[in-house]
Structures are given as structure tokens and as C-alpha cells.
Design a protein around this nucleic acid. Structure first.
Length: 617
RNA sequence: GCCUUGGUAGCUCAGCUGGAUAGAGCAACGGCCUUCUAAGCCGUAGGUCUUGGGUUCGAAUCCCAACCAGGGUACCA
């Protein structure tokens, strides 16, 4: 059975040279052997709990011996001592051990750690598993915007998570197709179209200078304002609230437009195309700024009819049932859920119907092994149902779909609401952060000698690094808070902190190069290693584990937190240990290799988060 | 009502597939730039891990209940 070990054993094999078996694996096997020989018990591997030794104790790897005391029938200390002796005698790398309560702390030889560093420093894609012919193909759907308003902070979280998750899945040896389904039709789109037609005065992005998605968004807001006025007026005239809402001219106009759209009325289609193009042009800018992209884009206007046939087939096959008003339903009470509507009484599709259709479509387009939907947790129920329905319809991929359910971004006042104007606009936020970044850089005067263009690239890199890291370092499943009053930090556990560390490493390496110091990656003769240096090597050795864990758990946050720990460790080292000024050449070389490898790891890790790192800052 | 997710330091968050004295950052206070970039480093202070039971050698972590908060819940997407 797969066992979770803090030191992920199965993985260790992949990133170390094939000739060499990872120390954790060896120790685990030897422990099983020791128990067998000493206590005559054949134990399950899952009982062997190995973990990294906590820093306050001496040692590198710790075995929890409690599970074995009932076999040894001796005290935990004595049991630990017996196992410790056995390991010391039978595993070369185990130099010594100590025992604290029921914990056996093993010290691994520095030769071993040096070899780990050597491997990490010389392998070109350290921590990354390349895809192969047998790799799984994973399709990741993310972003999925509506074309009636610009992107906001919630979309930013979605986009960053989707992009980063895709990178992480790739780094775990999968092939990934990033896809986006654009919700480009429906009553909400018609609302902004109607508003533009009524009150637009021929405004275009060109003649107003307003970014297309924002312009269209303005009309969506305008619609709501006028609609509310009309409702108020009708109520004043004695209409009931429901009647007023149903019969306000704006609503009637939007509905009429939707009917015309569905009837392919040329004028309506033309307006729809024009306004959507404005929005797409705007989205392209935002996506580019965010640094996300897609391999395949689906448009709801092209796919929204697909699901209906499947539902009708399900009806024929008796999987679904029809009510007297001819609406079609699925009965999910056997699954512990409710009844779910699939076709309205007028025969039109609902959201669920469309998702059934697009799922089928995608599996026809690609030979997908796994489908991942990056969609907010407010839709947990929807995806639970979708999975069941696909399964009922006989699609084997139904059960395997994964809803990557992420939490909302909340403001101090609560949830963001487009209509109440409490959204944080994506473009505005990025622009503000770039401005803060520029000011900070200029105050610190770090970029002297850069051309304005080079400097601008760096400001953006830092600003986006701050934003992305801020969003990705928290557990995706959880809701998170964003306070617009407090700008996103550039100090502490932040993207810029990590970028800064990288820039310092690069600076040292440039200087080494300038001084004609060449780095030797053959570290065989290096022996005398300080504790801090060992800590760093151990931290480096955990990178592939973090990547694996992030992939298994669908969590970019694991990568983010790993990099932070690594960087914190390095900064302490940087402060205490001179590199270039170290006179002992062997030691100087070791430290430079450590710095270089940490830098490489930072760069690779940040890339998995979609964050670039600067040469200077 | 039912389903579901969460509640850890003043604030934002790690830790949660059971292990050693619960960790960071921010904010506060104090120290460190003639030495590889101070967006950094070091230190002080700050905790009944919502509460109450249970399982266990061992519980922030697993189970049950309560309280509080978010989300969902049959013709929106």
C-alpha cells in the first residue's frame, strides 16, 4: 500500500543517479531486516516511519520506534539502540546515531550529502520529471471568463492556480493541455449588448481609448443601473416586484436580443461579434500581463448545444426521466443527492447539459487520461453531479474527472460583487503593483546602469512576482483575504524576497566569474562541512519531494512554501559565510556550488509558479 | 431544514495522510551596512491550536457533539 513518508521514498530514485539507491530506501529496507533478525517479525513497510530530523536534534533522518516496542518487548530506548546498532553496522552511510525518547536519530555521512549536492548541481533539470511516451495526458481547464466584464481578483487566483498547476503536473512527467472555455453567449452577454445599443452613443475602444473588456463591462454595469431604475419606476406605478423585474423594458430588450441571437439574426450576431472582439482584445492584454496562456480555447457559443443529444439519449435509455411539463431530470437520490434538471420545459439546455457536451467533445478531440477543472468551490455540487451524470451516461472518464476546487478571494467587507462595484480589477491591481515596484526600486537605486527598458522589465517582474506569490502561497482550497487598503508586501515571506535572494546569488556568481574563479562540480574531496551548509544541501535534496507532493496534492502552495524555506535557509548562510572571500579553495568551491544550485532550484521552482526571477534587483 | 468547507499569535498564513518544546511573515520593540546587494540578517515580546467529549504510548492533526463563519441546495452560469 502506498505510504506517505515525510521523506518520499519512491520518488528519491527518480532524481538520483540510477546506480545509486537513495539513502532513505536503503535504511527502510535495512530496518525491516533488522526487525526480522532481532525480533523475528516480518513487518509491513508502512510501519517504518522515517522523517527528517528536527533541527534542534543531532542527526539527519529519524526513525519513530514506538511501533516496534511491542515486538521487541523492550523499552523504546533499548529498541532504538538495537536498531541503531544494526544500521550503523550494515549501512555505510549511517555514521552514528543518538536516541531521544522513542526517536532514533541517524547521522548520515557527509560524503553522502556531498554526492547529493553534486548530483543536483550537475543535473540539467533537477527536480523535474520529463514526460515520456507513456505519460498521462491531463487536460486542465481554467480561467473560463464571461465576455461581459473584465477580469477581477477572483479570476487572477483562478488563472494563476490553473497555470501553475499545469506547470507542476508537467514537472511530474505528465503531458498537459491547457484549455479555456469562454462563456461568450447567454442572457448576461445580451445585457451589455442591449445597454450598448441603447446608450452606447457609438462608443468603441478606439474612439474612447478604453480597453475593450472594460468598455463592455461598463455597459454591463449601465444595464444594471437602468434596469434597477425601471423596476423602481414600475413599482411606483403599482406593479408587483416580480412583475416589475420580469417586465422592465431593459429585461425585455435583453431577452429579445437573446432570442434574436439564437435565431441568428444578422444584426444581432454582428453586434455580438463586434463586442466580443473588443473583450477578447482586452483579455489578451490581461492574460499576457499575467503570463498565462492556453493550448486550446473552446467557445460556449459553439459547444452549448452539444450536451442535449446526450441527455436525450439518456432519456431514451431510461437513465433520466421526463416530467409532465416535458422538462428532463436526473434522479440522484440513490447517490444521496437531489433531483437535477437537465433540459428546461422549453427544451433548452442548462449549464449542466452544456458541461456534459463539452466533456464529451474534449475526450473526442484529445486522448485525455485525466480532466481537471479549475473552478471555484461554490461549484462543488455541480462537479459532484457532473461526475455522476457522465458515469451514468456510460462515459468512463466521468468518475475520473477532478474538480480542482479553490477558495474565494474575499475582501474585508466580504465577498466581491461585480454589481456593487466591490471588485478588485485585475488590470488596475497589476498596474498599481508595478508602480509600487518601480518606486521601491528607484528609491533603493538598485538598477543603476540598466536601460529604462531593462528596468521596466524588472519592475514588472517584481510586481508580478509579489502578486503571484501572494496568491499561490496559500492553500488553494481555502478562502483567502485580500485587503486593498494594505498593498501586497514586498518584504518577508513574499515573491520579491525570493527574487532578491536569486539576484544576490547571481551577483555573487557574476563576480566569481569576473575574478576568474571557475566552479568545479566534482566535490569528491570535500569533507569538512559546516552544519549550515549541510542544512542547505538537505534543503536542496527536498526539492524533488516538494514537486512530487505538489503534483499529488494539486497544490502550488507546497512549492511556494518549499522555496521560501530554502531561501530563508540560504539567506542565513549568505549572511554568515563568505563565499568569494573564502581562502580555502575547496571550501569556496563548495559554497559556490551550493549557491549556484540554490539559485537553480529557486529559478525552477518559481517557474512552476509562473514567476520569473531577475538577474539584478 | 439538508449537504459541504473552514475556525492555529493583534493581522495574514504554514503545520493537519497521528510523533519530540505548535512555526513563519506582517505589525511592535531592540540590535547589525568601510567586508559577496540591508527588498537582508540577529534578538525580544506575543498561543487554553473555537469549546466539550472520545480513540491512542502519543492529538493542532483522527472520531463524535456543540458554537461561530463561508459556500451549495430542482428550470442562473
Amino acid at each position: 500500500m502506498p505510504v506517505y513518508d515525510k521523506i518520499q521514498i519512491s520518488l528519491s530514485l527518480k532524481f538520483q543517479s540510477k546506480k545509486k539507491m537513495s539513502i532513505e530506501l536503503i535504511i527502510r529496507d535495512k530496518i525491516v531486516e533488522a526487525i526480522d533478525k532481532s525480533y523475528n517479525q516480518l513487518i509491513d513497510l508502512s510501519l517504518v516511519q522515517l522523517q527528517n530530523t528536527r533541527k534542534e536534534f543531532e542527526g539527519d533522518i529519524t526513525l519513530v520506534v514506538f511501533p516496534f516496542v511491542r515486538m521487541s518487548k523492550k523499552s523504546p530506548e533499548q529498541t532504538a539502540a538495537e536498531i541503531g546498532d544494526y544500521l550503523q553496522q550494515n549501512v555505510n552511510e549511517v555514521e552514528k546515531y543518538n536516541i531521544v525518547k522513542g526517536f532514533l536519530n541517524l547521522t548520515i555521512s557527509s560524503e553522502y550529502w556531498v554526492s547529493v549536492l553534486s548530483t543536483a548541481s550537475t543535473s540539467p533539470n533537477y527536480g523535474i520529471t520529463e514526460s515520456s511516451e507513456t505519460s498521462k495526458l491531463v487536460m486542465v481547464e481554467y480561467s473560463s471568463p464571461n465576455t461581459n466584464k473584465p477580469l477581477h481578483l477572483g479570476h487572477i487566483r483562478n488563472n494563476l492556480l490553473g497555470f501553475s498547476l499545469s506547470e507542476i503536473l508537467k514537472a511530474n512527467g505528465n503531458k498537459v493541455v491547457k484549455t479555456n472555455i469562454v462563456n461568450d453567449r447567454g442572457i448576461h452577454i445580451c445585457k451589455s449588448m442591449y445597454a450598448w445599443k441603447m446608450w452606447g452613443d457609438g462608443q468603441t475602444p478606439e474612439n474612447t481609448g478604453i480597453k475593450g473588456d472594460h468598455l463592455v463591462g461598463n455597459f454591463y454595469v449601465k444595464f444594471d443601473q437602468e434596469y434597477k431604475k425601471e423596476i423602481a419606476q414600475l413599482i411606483e406605478q403599482g406593479e408587483t416586484k416580480e412583475n416589475a423585474e420580469q417586465n422592465a423594458p431593459a429585461m425585455l430588450g435583453a431577452r429579445e436580443m437573446l432570442l434574436k441571437w439564437e435565431a441568428r439574426d444578422p444584426e444581432t450576431i454582428e453586434l455580438w461579434k463586434t463586442m466580443n472582439q473588443w473583450v477578447y482584445a482586452g483579455f489578451d492584454v490581461t492574460y499576457k500581463e499575467l503570463g498565462v496562456d492556453f493550448d486550446k480555447i473552446y467557445y460556449e457559443s459553439e459547444t452549448y448545444l452539444y450536451g442535449k443529444d446526450e441527455v436525450l439519449r439518456g432519456l431514451n435509455e431510461g437513465v433520466f426521466y421526463q416530467k409532465e411539463d416535458s422538462s428532463v431530470w436526473a434522479d440522484l437520490t440513490p447517490e444521496g443527492l437531489d433531483q437535477k434538471i437537465l433540459l428546461r420545459s422549453d427544451g433548452t439546455s442548462v449549464y449542466m447539459t452544456q458541461d456534459i457536451g463539452t466533456a464529451k467533445e474534449r475526450f473526442q478531440d484529445y486522448s485525455i487520461d485525466k480532466m481537471v477543472y479549475v473552478v471555484g468551490n461554490e461549484q462543488n455540487y455541480h462537479f459532484q453531479v457532473l461526475s455522476i451524470l457522465l458515469d451514468k451516461l456510460g462515459f468512463e472518464f466521468g468518475k475520473g474527472l477532478h474538480h480542482f476546487s479553490y477558495g474565494m478571494v474575499e475582501l474585508p467587507q466580504g465577498k466581491m460583487k461585480s454589481r456593487e462595484g466591490t471588485v478588485v480589477d485585475a488590470d488596475d491591481l497589476m498596474a498599481e503593483m508595478i508602480e509600487v515596484s518601480r518606486k521601491t526600486s528607484e528609491e533603493l537605486g538598485k538598477l543603476e546602469g540598466y536601460t529604462p527598458e531593462q528596468a521596466a522589465i524588472t519592475y514588472r517582474m517584481i510586481a508580478l512576482g509579489a502578486l503571484k506569490y501572494f496568491m499561490l502561497k496559500v492553500d488553494p482550497k481555502k478562502n483567502m483575504l485580500f485587503n486593498p487598503e494594505e498593498s501586497i508586501d514586498f518584504n518577508g515571506n513574499t515573491g520579491p524576497f525570493i527574487q532578491y535572494t536569486y539576484a544576490r546569488i547571481r551577483s555573487v556568481l557574476r563576480k566569481a566569474d569576473d575574478r576568474g574563479i571557475s566552479i568545479n562540480h566534482h566535490l569528491a574531496n570535500t569533507t569538512d562541512i559546516a552544519a549550515k551548509e549541510l542544512e542547505l544541501i538537505k534543503a536542496i535534496s527536498q526539492f524533488p519531494v516538494a514537486v512530487k507532493e505538489a503534483g499529488d496534492n494539486y497544490s502550488p502552495a507546497i512549492v511556494a512554501n518549499y522555496i521560501y524555506e530554502l531561501v530563508k535557509e540560504f539567506n542565513q548562510f549568505y549572511h554568515e559565510f563568505p563565499m568569494l572571500a573564502e581562502e580555502n579553495e575547496e571550501l569556496r568551491n563548495l559554497r559556490l556550488v551550493i549557491a549556484e544550485t540554490v539559485g537553480k532550484t529557486i529559478k525552477t521552482g518559481m517557474k512552476l509558479l509562473g514567476i520569473d526571477v531577475p538577474e539584478r534587483m
